[in-house]
C-alpha cells in the first residue's frame, strides 16, 4: 500500500485505465499541456500523447456534447470540467442527451462517458464557482453520480466509473486534493452504489458524502471525547446508485440519524435519505432525523462567512447533540 494524495489517486486511476483500454480518452480545458488547472492530469500528456489526452477550447457545451457523441460509438471519454459550476453551460448535453439517449432509443445506444471535476465551496471564489450539483444531477434517471471523500475511494470509484457503461459524473473537491491516504498498489475498483462505514459507533448514525464525511469524522471525534457519544459515520460515496441497505442497517443499530451535506437544503441529497429512513426504518428511530446543510443562500464570497455557511464540525456537533437529546 502506498500513501498518496486524493489528486494522485485520481490521476493513477486515469493512468491505469488509459493503459488498460485504448478507447479511453482524457479531454478538457488545460488538461494536457498545462497539466490540469488543478494538476490532476499532470504527466498524462507526456505519457500518452495528444491523441489520448486532449486540450479543448472553453466550449463546454461543445466538447462535452462531443464526448457524449463519441461515447455512443464506443470511445470512453473522461471529460474534465475545471469546475462542476461550468457544467451549467453544458446542461442540455449532460442531462438531456447523456441522460436520455439510452431510454429514448429503447436500449439501443449506450453512453459510457465520465465527466469529472471539482464541485465544492469553501475556496473563497464566490457564487458562480461553488456549486455542488450532485442532487440536481442525481435527480435525473439515466445518470450516475459519485462523490469520493478519500484517496482510496477516489481511485476505486474513478476506475469503476470509467469501466461503467452509463454516464457517470464524478464530483471531486479541491479542498481534498492534497489529502493523503493509503491506496493499494494492485488493481481494484470501488463499485458504484456501495456505501462505506468510515467509523463504527453505537449511539448515532451520521450519513454524509464528499467533504462532509471528513467534517463528520472530525465532529465524531469531538462527540466521543467531549460528550462520550459513540458515532457511526456512513460515507455514501455514491449518490445514484444509492446503498440504501448500509444506511438502514446503521440506523437500525443506533436508532438515531443525522444527515450532513454541503449542499443547500432544498431537495438536497439528504432529503432523499430522510425519506428513505422514515419510510423503511420509522419504528427504529428514537428521535427525529437531524440535518446539517449549507446555509441556504448563494455561496458568499467572504471567506470567514463562507466557512460558517458550510457545515463545520461545531455545527455538526451541535446538531448531533440535538438528535441525541
Amino acid at each position: 500500500m502506498a500513501v498518496i494524495t486524493y489528486r494522485e489517486a485520481l490521476r493513477a486511476a486515469m493512468r491505469e485505465e488509459l493503459q488498460r483500454d485504448e478507447n479511453v480518452v482524457v479531454m478538457g480545458e488545460e488538461v494536457a499541456q498545462f497539466n490540469g488547472a488543478y494538476k490532476v492530469t499532470e504527466g498524462l500528456l507526456k505519457e500518452f500523447g495528444p491523441k489520448r489526452v486532449v486540450d479543448t477550447p472553453i466550449s463546454e457545451a461543445g466538447f462535452i456534447g462531443l464526448g457524449i457523441g463519441a461515447s455512443m460509438l464506443g470511445i470512453r471519454p473522461v471529460m474534465e470540467l475545471m469546475f462542476w459550476s461550468f457544467s451549467y453551460v453544458a446542461f442540455d448535453q449532460i442531462v438531456n442527451n447523456a441522460g436520455n439517449i439510452r431510454y429514448m432509443s429503447g436500449g439501443l445506444i449506450n453512453c459510457p462517458i465520465v465527466i469529472r471535476g471539482p464541485a465544492n465551496g469553501g475556496t473563497n471564489v464566490g457564487a458562480t464557482h461553488s456549486h455542488t450539483p450532485e442532487a440536481i444531477l442525481a435527480s435525473h434517471p439515466g445518470i450516475k453520480v459519485v462523490c469520493p471523500a478519500t484517496p482510496y475511494d477516489a481511485k476505486g470509484l474513478m476506475k469503476a466509473a470509467i469501466r461503467d457503461n452509463d454516464p457517470v459524473y464524478v464530483m471531486e473537491n479541491t479542498i481534498l486534493y492534497n489529502d493523503k491516504g493509503e491506496v493499494p498498489d494492485e488493481d481494484y475498483i470501488v463499485p458504484l452504489g456501495v456505501a462505506d462505514v468510515k467509523r463504527v459507533g453505537t449511539d448515532l448514525t451520521i450519513v454524509a458524502h464528499g467533504r462532509a464525511v471528513i467534517t463528520s469524522l472530525k465532529a465524531a471525534e469531538i462527540l466521543e471525547k467531549e460528550h462520550g457519544v459513540s458515532v457511526e459515520v456512513v460515507d455514501l460515496r455514491s449518490i445514484r446508485p444509492l446503498d440504501e441497505e448500509t444506511i438502514l442497517a446503521s440506523v437500525r443499530k443506533t436508532h438515531r440519524a443525522l444527515l450532513v451535506e454541503e449542499n443547500k437544503p432544498f431537495c438536497g441529497v439528504d432529503a432523499q435519505i430522510a425519506y428513505l429512513i422514515q419510510a423503511k426504518a420509522f419504528d427504529d428511530l428514537d428521535a427525529p432525523i437531524g440535518r446539517v446543510s449549507s446555509i441556504d443562500a448563494p455561496q458568499i464570497y467572504c471567506k470567514r462567512m463562507e466557512d460558517q455557511q458550510l457545515p463545520h464540525p461545531a455545527r455538526v456537533v451541535e446538531a448531533a447533540l440535538k438528535v441525541l437529546a
Binding site: I58, S85, F86, Y88, V89, N124, V125, G126, A127, T128, H129, P298, I300, Y301, C302, M305
Partner: peptide
Amino acid sequence: SQGKGGSMHYFAPDKNYWGGHGIVG
C-alpha cells in the same frame, strides 16, 4: 458587493456597470 461577490463579481449599476461575471462568455 458587501463582500458577497469578490474579485470576479464587481457591480456598480448606478455607474452603468453591470459586472463582473465569473462564467466565461
